[in-house]
């Protein structure tokens, strides 16, 4: 009986591990391709086909993109809005999600419904622009952080996470003289590190990928984040959006486009591995509380 179970377990584990390795490989493939092309010489790429390892190494693409400070500057802009923006997001979202997680709060349902409503209906680009302008945010980087300070989706899901924290812990803190604000910052947030890491990641990636609002709200091209330039170099080259006047523009070779993708993606890719330890931490705390 016992023997049987371990054999079953082993088969399960082996299948599971194999599948996961396979999925991991398939998922990493596109990025390996991008990476490989960016390091390959243009002549080699011109021959076509799937390149997963550079046959002829070349740093020409990187030399090209590093020969100007435009990309660096927009990278700094992106890092700035991502770090500061995410901080604002987490602060505002958790401040709002915590009270909404309290089933006894009066008016809670109404507020949640009102928040949900904004997920479905929006005023559109032009009225939103007028609001952003009236708040004096246009042409500054705040226009990329304040108008999206809280995502309704993240708020609702975070509220759901908060609800699963047992009340006992909070009550004991309250007896010790903490206010609700104190409970949130001293008890609930430290217990919710996995959730905070998750939503921090969601927000950070959201900020990192912003390009449309940057073009709309910012006139000074020196303040454009990296995604604007990335799309400028990558998407346009594909000629997918019909426009006759770009019929004949010189487009950057694939190698340079891929190098720009690598340059613009690697920083945000590094965020997740860094956050992973917080996921583990949540597990440990979780076991203590039980």
């Amino acid at each position: 009986m016992l023997q049987d179970k371990t054999i079953g377990n082993r088969i399960f584990d082996i299948t599971n591990y194999t599948l996961l390795i396979l999925i991991g490989l398939i998922c990493v493939l596109p990025f390996v391709y991008v990476l490989a092309v960016s390091f390959t010489s243009p002549a080699e790429v011109a021959k076509g086909g799937l390149i997963l390892w550079p046959k002829e190494w070349s740093l020409a693409s990187y030399r090209y993109i590093f020969s100007t400070d435009t990309l660096f500057r927009s990278m700094l802009v992106s890092i700035y809005i991502t770090v500061v923006g995410t901080f604002i997001n987490l602060l505002f979202t958790s401040l709002m999600a915590y009270p909404l997680a309290k089933a006894t709060l009066r008016g809670r349902q109404f507020i949640l419904l009102a928040v949900l409503f904004t997920m479905l209906f929006g005023g559109g680009m032009i009225p939103t622009y007028f609001v952003v302008k009236a708040m004096g945010l246009t042409n500054s980087l705040w226009s990329l952080m304040i108008p999206n300070a809280i995502s309704a989706f993240n708020l609702i899901v975070l509220k759901n996470f908060f609800q699963q924290i047992p009340d006992g812990l909070e009550d004991s803190a309250r007896i010790d003289g903490c206010t609700d604000v104190g409970v949130l910052f001293r008890i609930v947030l430290p217990l919710s590190m996995p959730a905070m890491a998750t939503f921090g990641l969601f927000y950070a990636v959201g900020h990192w990928n912003q390009f449309f609002s940057a073009i709309l709200y910012i006139n000074d091209s020196r303040l454009y984040p990296i995604q604007v330039l990335l799309r400028q170099i990558v998407i346009l080259a594909q000629g997918s959006i019909g426009d006759t006047s770009i019929d004949n523009v010189e487009i950057q070779p694939l190698t340079i486009r891929m190098a720009v993708i690598v340059f613009a993606t690697v920083p945000i890719l590094l965020v997740y591995p860094f956050l992973q330890k917080h996921f583990a931490k949540g597990v440990m705390l979780g076991s203590v509380k039980g």
């Binding site: 928040v115 005023g123 009225p127 609001v131 952003v132």
Partner: peptide
């Protein structure tokens, strides 16, 4: 939510 979501709702 009022300023950035409900005010522009007239759109």
């Amino acid at each position: 939510f009022i300023i950035f979501k409900y005010v522009p709702m007239y759109g």
